[in-house]
Design a binder for these strands. Structure first.
Lengths: 176, 176
DNA sequence: TTGACATATGCAAACAGTTGCATATAATTT
DNA sequence: AAATTATATGCAACTGTTTGCATATGTCAA
């Protein structure tokens, strides 16, 4: 049930609406936890009923009202307890690598095109992450503790995408 | 429905029983697709009903009988069609990075211990993959096409684990 | 001889995630 | 005036995954 904890992890930093959460899960948070807005809204209701979050409707002008969620003391304690439990490295499910595993039954062009496209996609993510790094995490010394931890997840995002780009290059080289 | 395709991708190389498949999904194939034996057996029945696989019961002595699954022509065509469709980079769900994102609410010791444990786990995987590399993929030139593709997935496994170990080191360094 | 381990297969319930649909306001573009 | 985009929220059906349980044979060690 780690979507719950991913939401708590974002809200412990600052309150957010479901819409804002969905945008974050589509952006930098999405690097380590993917979730759709439908999933997020459903989970938020559940977490509010459980008492880990409290919601407050904020009337807005010029746009629909929104519901801001705050983490409760119980929610924070739950998050702390969850963090303290050891966890396993993440399970991987990667379509591209399944394709590559059986790549010899397809035409080389199809495989090479797919590799090129993935290379491009990873390069774009990498560029976004590097922009974030330059904008928000210029010098380590001045960062707050919370910022340091956020930066660590960004660093993983950067090395993850860098590694993918390098592997695509190598794969293309080997197959050509 | 990519578990189906991951199974087809293994069986297109050579026939296997559910038990053997489960072991492979727990080993090197597990690097790019994680699946439990329950999932695998259920999926195998489904794929046989669909006509993508055919199963043959092999009587054995000194151990329970097993059922060997072969990919059918229809199954191979399905796999080829699936490979030809473009796919997105894999969605990530990583418990450890969720923990790190909110790591500032936990005690430093808990975080550092968890980082050390993950570093160790990734190092062990890396060692297994490097052993496989030395044993089966010594020189690129002599590899068959199928082996080259299999090697590419192993290469990704190696760089993935290497990247994790490096990140753990960096994270521990920054937090200390 | 009891217990653990390896081989070998599978069901069923609970939980999580995806996909398609639905609604509503307001600004901007065509 | 109509279409599109951004904001904002959510339900329902389906599909996929996890967890716990269940069964059966044979070997090896305590």
């Amino acid at each position: 049930m780690a979507l719950a904890h991913a939401i708590l992890a974002v809200l412990v930093d600052c309150p957010n609406s479901g819409y804002d959460l969905a945008k974050q899960f589509d952006g930098s948070v999405g690097f380590f936890w993917a979730a759709s807005h439908q999933q997020i809204y459903r989970e938020l209701s559940k977490l509010e009923k459980q008492g880990w979050l409290s919601g407050e409707i904020i009337p807005q002008e010029g746009r629909p009202d929104k519901k801001l969620y705050y983490i409760t003391e119980a929610g924070k304690q739950e998050l702390q307890a969850w963090i303290a439990q050891p966890c396993e490295p993440a399970a991987i499910k990667d379509d591209l690598l399944v394709k590559i595993f059986a790549g010899y039954i397809a035409s080389p062009k199809i495989i090479l095109d797919e590799l090129q496209q993935h290379r491009q996609a990873h390069l774009e993510k990498l560029s976004i992450y590097k922009t974030l790094e330059q904008r928000y995490f210029q010098n380590l010394q001045t960062l707050s503790l919370a910022e340091k931890f956020h930066y660590l997840t960004l660093l993983k995002g950067i090395s993850y995408e860098t590694d993918w780009v390098a592997w695509c290059d190598r794969a293309i080289e080997i197959l050509r």
